[in-house]
């Protein structure tokens, strides 16, 4: 039991370090919030008339629709940023210091992901506040907001774990940084920014079955129309799947790293 507690303390410490690291390096923190916020503001005003298109879902405004996409974008970037910091730790040898400590090696990974989860919560809070300021009405109320917090944090952890597996395998920050364009490819091929029925082919078909679309739609529902069982369930299953993939990949990557020494 005392070992468990010790590991829990390490996870907490490393989580705090991860968050401090992000805020102390403007080049890490800025893209998380600034970039998605700018894009949200510009796309909302630039493509706002999209709500006049036939078959566009019923919304109070385009911002209501876009908010979930912006949060998804930010939490994917948060996951990637955490993995970049992990790779930098490996490059600078700090990782070795942690691995040499008498604690479970998995707590080192969990510490980083805990930091990512907290970043996810902060991101959700930021965009929810922005939404409230600019008139978004959360149709499912407090429960919906709580659900969004959970979704953003969970998705950030899932993508953080996937990116961490690449950081652990390559040990190079530049490789993890190279995932940024990929994040946008995945986002553009989902319903993060537009409903799939109004997207062009073949993106529309891909977005229809992209698990990321299920998560975004699950986050969007309580904002624009209230919970619906099917969307919520699909979001839950998708998040569980992404988490499972993330943890499996990162666990194997950590094991492989430890074996390589």
């Amino acid at each position: 039991m005392s070992g468990f507690r010790a590991n829990l303390r390490v996870v907490g410490q490393l989580g705090r370090r991860s968050i401090r690291q992000t805020f102390r390096r403007p080049q890490l923190a800025a893209p998380l919030v600034v970039f998605p916020t700018i894009l949200l503001a510009i796309q909302t005003a630039g493509a706002g008339r999209a709500v006049d298109l036939p078959q566009f879902p019923e919304v109070n405004g385009f911002l209501d629709f876009m908010l979930a996409g912006a949060m998804m974008q930010a939490c994917m970037l948060a996951g990637n940023t955490g993995a970049i910091a992990l790779a930098l730790d490996i490059e600078m040898g700090f990782d070795d210091r942690l691995l040499a400590a008498p604690v479970s090696r998995y707590s080192l990974l969990l510490g980083r992901l805990m930091g990512t989860a907290v970043m996810g919560l902060l991101i959700a809070a930021w965009f929810i506040v922005i939404g409230l300021i600019f008139g978004v009405e959360f149709q499912s109320g407090i429960l919906g907001v709580a659900w969004i917090f959970g979704c953003v944090a969970t998705t950030a952890v899932a993508f953080g774990a996937i990116a961490a597996s690449i950081a652990l395998r390559t040990g190079k920050a530049s490789v993890v940084q190279g995932l940024f364009p990929l994040i946008f490819v995945v986002l553009f091929l989902s319903t993060a920014f537009f409903p799939d029925n109004l997207m062009l082919q073949p993106a529309a078909s891909i977005a229809k079955y992209n698990p990321l679309s299920f998560v975004v739609d699950g986050m969007r529902e309580p904002i624009i129309s209230g919970f619906s069982g099917s969307h919520t369930l699909r979001a839950l299953v998708s998040m569980a799947g992404l988490l499972l993939i993330g943890f499996t990949l990162s666990t194997f990557a950590l094991k492989s790293r430890l074996k390589r020494g």
Partner: peptide, 21 residues
């Protein structure tokens, strides 16, 4: 090269039907 190309393809795929307005 990648960033503008991805944005071009992505924005086209996502907002392509805005041209119907």
């Amino acid at each position: 090269v990648l960033a503008p190309t991805i944005f071009f393809l992505g924005l086209t795929a996502v907002f392509g039907n805005l041209a119907l307005l």
